[in-house]
Every structure is written in structure tokens, then in C-alpha cells.
Simulated scan of single mutants.
Amino acid sequence: MGRMGNAGAGARDRDAEGRARSARPRDGLGRPLPYGAPGVERQAEGVVRTPAETVAEAQALLDDGKPFHAHEVFEDAWKSGPEEERTLWRGLAQLAVGLTHAARGNAAGGARLLRRGAGAVEEWAAGSGVRRPHGMELDGLAAWARELAGRVESGAGSVEAGVEAPRLRGPR
């Protein structure tokens, strides 16, 4: 990563390639913390993983209450995986970021992304004819997302990301 910290008015943090990228630490839900504060280690970007590695790493992050970081793992699969699976991985990334927003207290954004992700994984399953890609239970994930979206919208209480985390491969 490039320069760390805020070097003055108009200055921007940059990565090694010169792209703007905040060097501020983040908490488990991806919220920026003050420079110098301890934060959660970020997921490396652009990592090419096998589907099994993607599912296992994302599940561990979800279980640990870090859906923002799980979304980054899914985003890597979406960007580096085969074209025919991009809708699947994008939908899973939307589910993870929907959980992130719900846990941050953004009911409208969380519910919208949870429903969008549910629709994407269902659309992918219908188009591909594959109901359990890489061992994942897509019908269960879509049902989980819609149920959580409804609870979040109804104001049924706060969402704890690790407690609400879905099981990508079905029940525990």
C-alpha cells in the first residue's frame, strides 16, 4: 500500500499502483476507523482462489461477524472466475454486503441488497440448472436473505452479523 495516513488537505491515500485507496483501518463491518486505530486486517484484493477456497474463506469470515470482508472474497471470485459464474459470485457478494448494511443499522440498504443478492443467486441457479454449485445451498441462502430482509425492514431489532451469518453449504 502507498502512503499511510492523511498527509494534508486534498491528499489521498494511494495503493502501490497509484489508485486511490483509503489506508484508514476498518472495523469488522468495514467501517473506517481513525488513522492509527487498531482495526481488522483487510482482505487482500485480487486473490484468485478455487471455488472451494472461496466458499471456505467467506464462510469463516461470515461466522466471525465480518460480512464486509466476506464480500471482498466473493468479489474476487466474481472478477476472476469464469464468465458463466459471475452472476452467482456477484449475488453472494450482495448477500454479504446486505448483511453488512443490516448490521450497521442501515435497514433500507441492507434489505435492498439482501433481496437483490437472493434474486441474483436464484437467477443464476435457474439459468444454469445447478442448484448446489460448489456445495452451496442456493435455495436456503435466498430464503435466509429474504427472511432477514423482512425482519430488518420491520424494525425487529439489531442485527448481529456473526449470529445472523448464513451457512453457505446448508444447516449447521
Rank of each mutant, 00 (worst) to 15 (best):
T50A: 07
G155C: 00
A120W: 03
A96I: 00
T50D: 11
P34N: 03
T87V: 13
G30P: 01
E57Q: 13
V73S: 01
Q59C: 00
L114R: 11
H71E: 09
A149V: 14
K66T: 08
E17H: 15
T54A: 11
G2L: 01
G162A: 07
A93Q: 14
H101Q: 15
G129E: 04
L29W: 03
D15P: 03
P51A: 09
L99N: 05
L95C: 06
E123Q: 15
A149Q: 06
V97T: 15
L138Q: 08
T54S: 02
L141H: 12
G39S: 03
R19C: 08
V55R: 02
A23W: 09
R19E: 14
E57K: 11
D76V: 00
R3T: 15
R90C: 04
P67N: 04
A108I: 13
G150R: 13
A145G: 06
P32R: 15
Q59A: 04
L88V: 04
R3S: 14
A23C: 10
E53C: 00
R12N: 06
L92V: 07
E147N: 04
A118K: 07
L61I: 05
P133N: 01
A108G: 13
H101E: 11
E45W: 10
A7I: 08
S158P: 11
M1V: 11
A149G: 12
G5N: 07
R172N: 07
L148T: 03
W89I: 05
D63E: 11
E17W: 14
A143R: 13
W124Q: 03
M136H: 04
P171G: 00
G157P: 04
V163F: 12
A16G: 09
M136A: 09
E164C: 15
L138D: 00
G155Y: 09
